[in-house]
């Protein structure tokens, strides 16, 4: 039995994935995934490397093109040709393992570029929003620094602030702490925890079991391109039902 958190009646799930397949040539990475994130929910996805969890996340804003299946963002199928994908993406914040800050721009410009070019905000408004978000991640004093002069943890917090500056409806995190030195992980997780407490809808691919247990509303375990088990984090982590989940958790916990 898997316990699953039902979306609030009447409200559309923020993210709904139906029958998602993805293959590269003959290599099948996702073998029919059904997955959803309710509005305001924090869903963590765990699993061994090569399980397809990052591919699943990258399909949600179509950085990876699904081979088959449906991806609904707030009820709208984003694989529909009539949908303006760029508009949808501007409402989905994304945080990468390698930060991917723009190295030729200052921290402040990193945060204002898309606000101005996508949201059409004026300079003053974009700067004001950027500063609010920099303050939120605790890096106000770094606004004129360049990414190369920041630590990995600082870069990742700037990346989170950059995504937040678009006022997204939801956030995707692709192993946000995997490239960080251990002593820098805590700051980034702290920012993510604050976000979750503010009610942000979040999908987090992670290896941080502590974060998943403490902050997550739902935990999804993937292996071999399928969802093996999902449920309340405390249930999945403490009392895994499936043998593959047990063997994975015994290695990482």
């Amino acid at each position: 039995m898997t316990a699953s958190v039902q979306p609030e009646p009447g409200s559309l799930p923020a993210i709904e994935v139906r029958g998602l397949h993805k293959h590269y040539g003959r290599h099948e990475v996702l073998k029919g995934i059904d997955f959803h994130v309710a509005a305001g929910q924090v869903v963590c996805v765990i699993g061994p490397s090569g399980s397809g969890k990052s591919t699943l996340l990258r399909c949600v804003n179509r950085l990876e093109e699904p081979s088959a299946g449906e991806i609904l963002i707030e009820g709208v199928d984003i694989c529909d040709r009539k949908v303006d994908l760029d508009e949808v993406r501007s409402r989905i914040g994304m945080v990468f393992q390698q930060f991917n800050l723009f190295p030729h721009l200052s921290v402040l410009k990193n945060l204002t570029l898309a606000q101005r070019s996508v949201r059409g905000r004026g300079k003053d408004e974009a700067v004001r929003i950027a500063r609010q978000n920099l303050a939120k991640v605790g890096l106000s004093e770094k606004e004129s620094a360049y990414p190369a002069h920041l630590s990995g943890g600082q870069q990742q917090r700037v990346a989170i602030a950059r995504a937040l500056s678009m006022n997204p409806d939801m956030m995707l995190f692709d192993e946000p702490t995997s490239a960080l030195d251990p002593e820098l992980v805590g700051d980034v997780l702290g920012v993510m925890k604050d976000l979750a407490q503010e009610g942000m809808t979040m999908m987090v691919v992670t290896h941080e079991m502590g974060f998943a247990r403490e902050v997550g509303d739902k935990l999804v375990f993937m292996d071999g391109g399928v969802v093996v088990e999902e449920g309340l984090p405390v249930d999945v982590l403490s009392n895994p039902q499936h043998e593959r989940t047990q063997s994975f958790l015994s290695k990482v916990l």
Partner: peptide, 8 residues
């Protein structure tokens, strides 16, 4: 990818 995911 970062730029496109911001909607650019």
């Amino acid at each position: 990818e970062a730029a496109r995911s911001l909607g650019m």
